[in-house]
C-alpha cells in the first residue's frame, strides 16, 4: 500500500488516486520538424529502476493533478507537489 501526501488533502491511501503518466517527458518545441523527437515524446518511455517523477490524479479527493516522486524499486514516496506549481 502506497500512501501519498496530497498538498491539499494530506496523507491519503493510494486507492484514492489514479496514475496519470511519466512526468519527466517534455514536449518538443512546436516548430520541431524531425520525426524522432515527436516519436519519443508520444510513444517512447524509459522504464527506470529507482526514482521516477509521475503525474497522479487525486480522483476521489481534491481532483488535483500532482507530480509525485516514486521509487519504482522500493515503492518509497518522495515529494508530492501540485502539477501547476511544478510547471511554474
Amino acid at each position: 500500500m502506497i500512501r501519498i501526501n496530497c498538498p491539499i488533502c494530506g496523507l491519503r491511501s493510494e486507492t484514492e488516486f489514479t496514475y496519470g503518466e511519466d512526468a519527466s517527458v517534455t514536449r518538443p518545441a512546436m516548430d520541431e520538424s524531425a520525426a524522432q523527437p515527436w516519436l519519443d515524446y508520444v510513444f517512447n518511455r524509459d522504464n527506470p529502476r529507482g526514482w521516477h517523477r509521475e503525474y497522479w490524479h487525486h480522483a476521489q479527493g481534491c481532483r488535483q493533478w500532482l507530480v509525485l516522486e516514486r521509487n519504482t524499486l522500493t515503492h518509497e514516496i518522495g515529494t508530492c507537489r501540485l502539477a501547476r506549481e511544478d510547471a511554474a
Binding site: A59, Q60, C62, R63
Partner: peptide, 10 residues
Amino acid sequence: FLQTGLHSVA
C-alpha cells in the same frame, strides 16, 4: 471536513 473515497465513490 474531508474529501475521500467511500466504497470507491468520491
